[in-house]
Design a binder for these strands. Structure first.
Length: 323
DNA sequence: CTCGTTTCTCATGTTTCACG
DNA sequence: CGTGAAACATGAGAAACGAG
C-alpha cells in the first residue's frame, strides 16, 4: 500500500518545528483557553487539536503540520517540559531559580543532575531556554500546579472537611444513603480518584445510571449502602488525617530545604560549590537539619572545614582502593 | 562511535456524543 | 437505553540527530 511508503517517508523527513511555529502554537493554545476550550480536568475539549491545526494553517498557509501526530505530540512535549520546570521551581525542590531574561532554569549543574536522577522529565532542560513558560503557565498552570500541589491537596482535604461537616449537620451521619440520597452518593465522591473504578461490563459512559428497586429491596439496599457509606466515611476520615499530616510535613521539610540553601548562600567564605555540597549534606540528613535549625548555623564554617577534610580523605581512599 | 535527546508512531484504554 | 464511532490521554518504543 502507499500508506507504508508514505509512512517511511515521514520517518525519514522528520518534521522540525521552527520557533515561529512554536510561537503560533502557543498563541493558539492561549486562544483556546480564552475561548473556553479548556475542560475542567487536565485536558482540552474534543477537537482542540483540529482547532489548533486550523489556527496554525491560518497563520502559515500551506503549512504541513497536522493535528495528529504533529500538534498532539508537540503539545504533549510542551506539557511535559512545563511540568518539569514547574516541579523544579516548586517547594519540593531547592537550589533552583528562574532566569526571566533568558527564560531558562537557573541552577548549579550538580544540583540539576541530582534532580534528574529522580525526575527524568527534567532531562535536557539545563541551560535550555523555554521561552513559552509564562504562556504555558496560563494554559497548563491550573491543572499542573506542581509547585502548589501540597497546598492544593491540603485545600482539598479542608474542602472535604467542610462538605462533611455540612452534610453531617444536614442529615446526621457524614454520608447517609436513603433512596433520595442514592444519587448523591456519587456526587460526594468525585474529589477522590474515581478513574478506573468502573466495574468490568458496566457502561462507563453512563455514570448517572439510576436503578429502580421495590420498597423491600430498596430498604435492605439502603441499609447496606448506609453501612458502606459509614465505612467509606471512616476510611476517608483516616485518609484525610494521613494525607494532611504527610503533605503538611512534606511542605514543612521543603520550606526548610529552601531556608537552608538561602542561609548557606549568605555565609561568607563559602564558594558556590561548597554551598551546594553543604546543602546536599545537610538536607540529606534529618538529624543535621534539626541541628541546623535548633543550634544556629554559626558552626557551619568550622564544620565545613571538617567535612571538606572528610571528603578529601574519602576520595583519597577511593583513589587508593581504585588503583 | 556512543550516548542522550527529540520527534514521531503505535497500542491501549477512557470519555463523549450521536444515532437507532 | 444501548451501541458504536470519534477524539483524546498515556506510555512504550523506534528512528533521527547532535554533542562529546
Amino acid at each position: 500500500m502507499d500508506g507504508s511508503s508514505e509512512n517511511q517517508n515521514v520517518r525519514i523527513t522528520k518534521r522540525q518545528w521552527t520557533p515561529e511555529e512554536d510561537g503560533v502554537l502557543v498563541e493558539g493554545l492561549l486562544k483556546l483557553v480564552d475561548e473556553g476550550w479548556k475542560a475542567d480536568a487536565n485536558s482540552f475539549k474534543p477537537g482542540y487539536t483540529k482547532a489548533l491545526e486550523k489556527y496554525i494553517h491560518n497563520k502559515f498557509p500551506g503549512c504541513t503540520l497536522k493535528a495528529t501526530p504533529h500538534i498532539e505530540s508537540r503539545v504533549k512535549l510542551f506539557k511535559r517540559q512545563y511540568s518539569a520546570i514547574k516541579d523544579m521551581l516548586g517547594p519540593g525542590a531547592s537550589g533552583f531559580g528562574w532566569n526571566d531574561a533568558k527564560k531558562m532554569i537557573k541552577v548549579e549543574k550538580e544540583i540539576y543532575h541530582q534532580w534528574c536522577k529522580s525526575h527524568p522529565t527534567a532531562v535536557g532542560l539545563y541551560k535550555k531556554p523555554f521561552p513559552h513558560y509564562d504562556s504555558l503557565d496560563t494554559v497548563f498552570g491550573k491543572d499542573k500546579a506542581a509547585g502548589t500541589v501540597t497546598e492544593d491537596i491540603i485545600d482539598m482535604t479542608i474542602e472535604m472537611e467542610k462538605e462533611n461537616v455540612q452534610s453531617t449537620q444536614e442529615g446526621g451521619s457524614g454520608i447517609s444513603l436513603n433512596d433520595d440520597d442514592a444519587e448523591n452518593f456519587e456526587s460526594q465522591m468525585p474529589e477522590t480518584p474515581t478513574a478506573n473504578t468502573t466495574a468490568p461490563g458496566s457502561n462507563p459512559s453512563n455514570p448517572a445510571t439510576t436503578v429502580k428497586y421495590n420498597d423491600d429491596a430498596s430498604d435492605s439496599m439502603s441499609n447496606s449502602l448506609n453501612k458502606l457509606g459509614e465505612i467509606y466515611a471512616n476510611g476517608i476520615e483516616n485518609m484525610k488525617q494521613v494525607f494532611t499530616s504527610c503533605f503538611v510535613h512534606e511542605k514543612h521539610t521543603a520550606d526548610r530545604r529552601n531556608q537552608i540553601v538561602s542561609i548557606l548562600k549568605e555565609i561568607e567564605g563559602l564558594s558556590d560549590a561548597e554551598v551546594v555540597m553543604a546543602g546536599m549534606l545537610i538536607t540529606k540528613d534529618n538529624n543535621l537539619c534539626d541541628y541546623f535549625f535548633h543550634n544556629g548555623y554559626s558552626w557551619i564554617e568550622e564544620a565545613f572545614i571538617l567535612v571538606d577534610f572528610a571528603i578529601f580523605f574519602n576520595s583519597e581512599d577511593g583513589d587508593r582502593t581504585d588503583s
